[in-house]
């Protein structure tokens, strides 16, 4: 067991390192560098040269990479190239709270509800309830986020006249209920987005297990359907469900650029896009590492969960 975890951690670290190289090369393949983007239309050769020297962009690529890696490993995130005097740590600390709060609340609210609905659908396949849920989730899967978000704003803010169209104000000194109200629209939209996938995957995973012979045996023994699903089927379906949850949560942390832009609050996903726009490779690298680590950790938890829930994996031959 311990060995499995160690192997996974080692693999995770290697993946992260590989990703950092890929991101670095990718950033450098983009036209223009941080100095050029910062000066924009106002760039001259003199000012470009001065700025490049100041930012260390005149060094060869491998030196830039290793300089970053060396500093990063020592916990020195460095200074943003786009602004020149704001540290990466400050940029991230201004935003990670928003991202953390939104993703945690989405997970707390969205995951239990969706999994519950998915299991219910699996319990009564083919009923009106199941069909309604399937239709709803397929529609939601197909609708892009900005569309869902627009409908939310249109209905909640302009039609019902409650709440704010964008997230305004600060999150300081707010308790849980106030935080939920503060981020209500982004959280609601994200819950709908992840619910769609979670409901469908939970239903499919449980139904898949329901088709196996041992379930048939259980049904033949006369065990009530609810008990069959909850005791016999669900435990075996946990592996795939947890994996889907992990992927969705990682997405909520890293990929919610549309939601952040639409509701106008500053989060990490927007930050990395801004990093790319300004060719701020130090910022991109650091965020890339954070995102990569999020994925690796969440996937590791998912793997462990499926191992723990499955005796065959828990005791490999």
């Amino acid at each position: 067991m311990f060995r499995i975890i160690l192997t996974k951690i080692a693999a995770g670290l290697l993946t992260t390192l590989g990703v950092s190289i890929v991101i670095f090369l990718g950033t450098n393949a983009l036209p223009g560098d941080a100095a050029q983007i910062r000066l924009g239309q106002a760039a001259t050769e003199d000012s470009l040269r001065a700025l490049r020297e100041e930012l260390g962009l005149n060094l060869p690529l491998y030196q830039q990479y290793f300089r970053w890696l060396f500093n990063f490993l020592q916990g020195e995130f460095g200074t943003s190239l786009a602004s020149g005097n704001v540290t990466i740590a400050q940029l991230i600390s201004d935003r990670y709270e928003n991202t953390l709060i939104v993703s945690t609340l989405t997970a707390m609210i969205g995951v239990p509800i969706s999994v519950g609905l998915g299991i219910m659908a699996a319990m009564f396949p083919g009923t009106i309830y199941d069909r309604f849920l399937t239709l709803g989730s397929v529609t939601l899967v197909a609708a892009p986020e900005f569309f869902t978000a627009t409908l939310m704003v249109l209905f909640v803010v302009f039609f019902l006249g409650i709440g704010n169209a964008v997230v305004v104000g600060s999150i300081e000194d707010k308790n849980l209920a106030e935080l939920i109200t503060h981020f209500i629209l982004p959280i609601a939209t994200l819950c709908l987005v992840i619910a769609a996938q979670l409901i469908r995957m939970t239903r499919a995973a449980v139904l898949n297990v329901m088709n196996s012979p041992y379930i048939e045996m259980a049904i033949l023994k006369g065990i009530p359907r609810r008990r069959v699903v909850m005791r016999h089927a669900l435990l075996n379906a946990i592996g795939p469900i947890v994996n889907v949850i992990a992927i969705n949560l990682a997405y909520v942390v890293t990929g919610v650029i549309v939601i952040e832009v639409y509701f106008g609050y500053a989060g990490l996903a927007t930050l990395i896009v801004q990093g790319v726009q300004t060719r701020d490779y130090i910022l991109i690298q650091t965020l890339g590492m954070i995102f990569c680590a999020t994925y690796v950790i969440l996937m590791m938890i998912a793997d462990l969960a499926s191992i723990l829930s499955n005796p065959r994996l828990r005791h490999p031959k």
Binding site: V153, V166, G264
Partner: peptide
Amino acid sequence: HFGIGDPVARLNAFMAGDV
């Protein structure tokens, strides 16, 4: 003072009275 990069979101915020 802050920026809302997306024009639609900015307009929404203004029309809803948030800014």
